[in-house]
Design a protein around this nucleic acid. Sequence first.
DNA 1: CTGAAAGCGCTAACAG
DNA 2: CTGTTAGCGCTTTCAG
Lengths: 335, 335
Amino acid sequence: MKDIARDLGVSLMTVSKALRNHSDISQQTRERVLKRMRELNYQPDWIARSMVTRRTYLVGLVLPDLMHSFFAEVAKGVARKLGPLGYQIVISNTEEEGEAERRHVEVLLTRKVDGLIIASAQRNGQVELFEILDRSKVPYVLIDRMVAGVEANYVGVKDDDLGALATEHLIEQGCRRIAHIRGPALATGTGRLRGYRRALARHGMEVGPNYIVSGQYGDTTGYEAMRELLQTNPRPDGVFCYNDPVAAGAIKAVLEAGLKVPEDIAIVGAGNVHYSDLLRVPLSTVDQGSSVIGESAADLLSQCMEAKAPVSPRRIFTTPRLIVRDSSRRKETVV
Amino acid sequence: MKDIARDLGVSLMTVSKALRNHSDISQQTRERVLKRMRELNYQPDWIARSMVTRRTYLVGLVLPDLMHSFFAEVAKGVARKLGPLGYQIVISNTEEEGEAERRHVEVLLTRKVDGLIIASAQRNGQVELFEILDRSKVPYVLIDRMVAGVEANYVGVKDDDLGALATEHLIEQGCRRIAHIRGPALATGTGRLRGYRRALARHGMEVGPNYIVSGQYGDTTGYEAMRELLQTNPRPDGVFCYNDPVAAGAIKAVLEAGLKVPEDIAIVGAGNVHYSDLLRVPLSTVDQGSSVIGESAADLLSQCMEAKAPVSPRRIFTTPRLIVRDSSRRKETVV
DNA sequence: CTGAAAGCGCTAACAG
DNA sequence: CTGTTAGCGCTTTCAG
């Protein structure tokens, strides 16, 4: 930059302004500066700039599990929106551990990210992290998982509705003994469970004994949980699973037991991960609009980051959409 | 920092040194500084520090596709190693486009990352990007995909061996007409193809007419490619697929055609993505050690970044490991 | 429209 | 062991 100024016989300031096409600079000078800058292949030093502007154009994306393609898709959505605006995305993988999540967020704050998008693994009521966040004044958006007791921007599905939708579908397919492999004690897990209960109640159906078992996030836990369910008597004829990986594990267990999906047991997952279609039995699922979630979260966040005054939190809900594949299709559905 | 110094009646420098536990500072002073720093909840300003040290502790990870769980796993491996060393990881998703990759890398260079790990989508012989990289003096490690004509650090499998291993296995299982759904014109694609040819040659077998069809990266292309293969006459009885997603798509096509896997057509993929086990037919595959690749790359890179003088490029090869599941098991294998 | 002065928060180099 | 001086590359403020 100094070089450009010297070469052109103008001051540093002129160059600085020209580069950021600041208003008060003559068209002609600007051109000359830009030309010389290209010749020298000059790149503004982003760090020096940050130092004085207090903006890093870094955004933290905190996810519990990159391997779960739902989150990978969210990440893509976020990048698609934020990239063009000049932001870089720093991804942190918390492995579903609230403690690790806190550390990661703190590091990102030290790094002075301009904003954060978080799919939190904090248990309901664990609000400490968010107090830190609020104090820091760095804008953030929660995705996929609301956290009870936290007033914050949120983008995601209404989990109750998702659970109800999946369960209603099983009822419609003629299932009479519907079980649920529930997720962790987060908003997603409890919400989906609530939806499951709501749907059954509405149809005057009861939750069978031991019909709610606890899976966690992955296929192995789904497998284990299903094996438990297979022990119950009477055996369920339909299972709504917390998410697709869990459902995939569950299918494996059912088939191994020599039973058929969906004839003996119909199964529905959630998340519509991109390989749902390729599983042993193509998996019925509820789509949450993963990339839309990423994009909306990015939009919302960029508004907050751009705003000079803090904006009051908003909540954006995506609509869960049922996708019926073989794992739950027991009746010829008329389209 | 100024505050700490003032409160303690020492100079800025003393504080600065104490915080970085620089050698020449008295134990006592250091304690006092650290104590006060905790009281004030002081966080060193990382940007200001970068400005003078010329180190950002940022590492760019450039991947062609986050949705492919192979890369997600690599990312996790990288994070596991680099996180504890104080590096943050900036992930870029290039969508398999060389052009986008170049732009992303350039942005990362402007951002002054300390190093890069790249699974490149540059075609063989497309070396421009790497010339830029070399000129920038920023150390980088190529993973998974070597690029012909580029002397650089590399961590990954020998693709020839991988291809040969998979093909030999099909031969061993009694397949006599083995086809290949090949990948893109990158080192991985051409290497695996070469291995496939080598294995056939070694057994005096010929490549059937139109037995090499071009898939790309994903399941849809695998599906299409397989449908093409099904038209050939005689039909192949074994197919080695570029990677697991392609193989998953291929299986779908075979089953849809009313044929059986592996009885009619045996299938082997590559990559051992974590859901390989849950597919319509559990998929035989070749494991490349995804997380080991990530970890080794991280180790190698951190050595380069730590080193004061540029280190000469090294290549680290992981051993491909065959994993036999149902999609290719035609004989009772004696273990 | 252009420029001079001041400083962002920190550290390297050297002197005491 | 501690402190002084200088400066990283840029922008903000305000005066020409």
